[in-house]
């Protein structure tokens, strides 16, 4: 899937975007960013924007809602049918 990272700051800063512990992208001396990033999500996940000192500047939790049809399926054979 593709996510869009958008942020802005009054002063130019060095930052990195993390998906949990995984580093997705970094920017140097930027005041604003609007970038598409390819990634994958299979469960609820928190994205964080961290500066070079390790301070979390912003965070966003993304919740995954699996569609019902993927969880349950119609059975295709008669139950207890011997043959």
């Amino acid at each position: 899937m593709t996510i869009t990272a958008t942020w802005q700051s009054p002063q130019p800063i060095d930052t990195c975007l993390y998906q949990a512990q995984k580093k997705l992208s970094c920017w140097q001396q930027q005041t604003q960013v609007n970038q598409k990033i390819a990634t994958s999500l299979d469960k609820d996940m928190t994205f964080t924007l961290v500066n070079t000192q390790g301070k979390i500047l912003a965070s966003q939790k993304v919740k995954i809602n699996l569609s019902q049809s993927q969880l349950y399926r119609r059975r295709l054979r008669a139950q207890w049918s011997l043959f």
Partner: peptide, 14 residues
């Protein structure tokens, strides 16, 4: 309507 919304006699959890 053949969509499964829950596990029952004819629908099963994948």
């Amino acid at each position: 309507s053949a969509q499964c919304k829950q596990a029952d006699d004819n629908c099963v959890l994948t």
